[in-house]
Amino acid sequence: MKRNLAGAGIVLLFAFMLMSPKAVFNGASEGLLLWFQIILPTLLPFIMITNLLVYTDSIHYISRIFGRLLSCIFKVSENGSFAVIAGFLCGYPMGAKVAADLIIGGYITEEEGKYLLSFCNNTSPVFIMNFIIWKTLGREELLIPSIFILLGTPMLLSFVFRRFYLKEEKYFCNQKKETRNRKKWNFQVVDTCIMDGFETITKVGGYIIVFSVILSLFQSLPLKPMLLQILLPSLEVTNGIAIIGKSKVIFDLQYPAIIGLTSFGGFCAAAQTQCMIQKTNISIFPYIIEKLVTAVVASIIAFLYLHII
């Protein structure tokens, strides 16, 4: 049944693309430019260096510095603290990729990986500053509050989510060294990390282009129901934020909507996340639910900030 529905949807999409070549071209162009000008130079260096850190077993240097503090706050293992740092600073989908790499490398358990994924896969502070505050909203006074809301909300909800994964344990522990997939340092490792980085960034770009094309096709429709107009921005976060920012919605609703969408990341980011964790046994559905909960809470906090603070 699911296969038949998916097949029918793909056929309809193909027919829609044939009937609207201009929309396809515009969507693909916007997605490609977004990937080439922003995502590629921003994300690729971090993917390569995190690959090297994991492959050469060098993450223990970072774990020694930040591990105890982050373990105390989030109850993660010292190795898991590396995913916390990458997930909050590097942007989508680095939190998911690092958590998956740590599971595959034997650094953390799969349960800890699920917990890390629930709150460590977020929008980067650079994206918040550059695209949301300066380019879209144009209100620098909202910079600090927006960063606090978008980064603080998943931190706050980690205290709730951990109850589903820690169970009766007080905190997660490092895996034994024998379980790790350790590799000797040589230039073959560097080559492997570089190629893995290009494969990852290419997949991310592919999803951005696909979702940008779908978004452009829906926008080209002569009649768009209200529900469709509300759901369209959730397809891809960057284009979605731009749509909300250009809409005629009052700012008191526009700002919480942008904060909520940024916190969720859009379905494109969810697809990228699924791509990153596909070599593990982690299901994408709990992640989507957790991100939606985070988006709702972040939107409420943003709304209250405008009206109370």
Rank of each mutant, 00 (worst) to 15 (best):
A270D: 01
S234H: 02
I104E: 15
E290A: 14
V296R: 05
A86Q: 10
Q229L: 14
F131I: 01
N186W: 02
V160E: 08
T192K: 13
P21E: 10
F127N: 08
V297G: 03
H307E: 11
I309K: 05
F46D: 00
C90V: 01
K248D: 15
G240Q: 09
I103M: 04
I73M: 03
F88N: 01
C173Y: 10
G87C: 05
P233F: 00
I241D: 02
T56D: 08
E141A: 15
A298S: 13
P125C: 07
L53F: 12
L89E: 11
S247M: 00
N122V: 03
H60D: 14
S247R: 03
E236A: 00
C173I: 14
I214W: 06
Q219C: 03
N186E: 09
S299F: 03
I244P: 01
S71I: 05
S158L: 01
R180W: 06
F251C: 08
I243K: 06
N174Y: 06
P125A: 04
F46K: 00
F161D: 04
K135S: 15
T262K: 00
V296M: 12
Y255C: 05
I108K: 04
C173T: 14
L261E: 11
L215M: 15
D252E: 15
I250E: 10
I149A: 08
G80T: 03
Y165N: 02
D196A: 15
V76I: 14
I301A: 04
G31M: 08
E78M: 14
P41H: 00
I133W: 11
S81I: 11
F303I: 07
G240P: 05
V204Y: 01
F14H: 04
F264T: 11
T179L: 12
F16W: 12
I194E: 06
L223E: 15
I244D: 00
I284V: 11
Q254K: 10
Q254Y: 07
T50S: 08
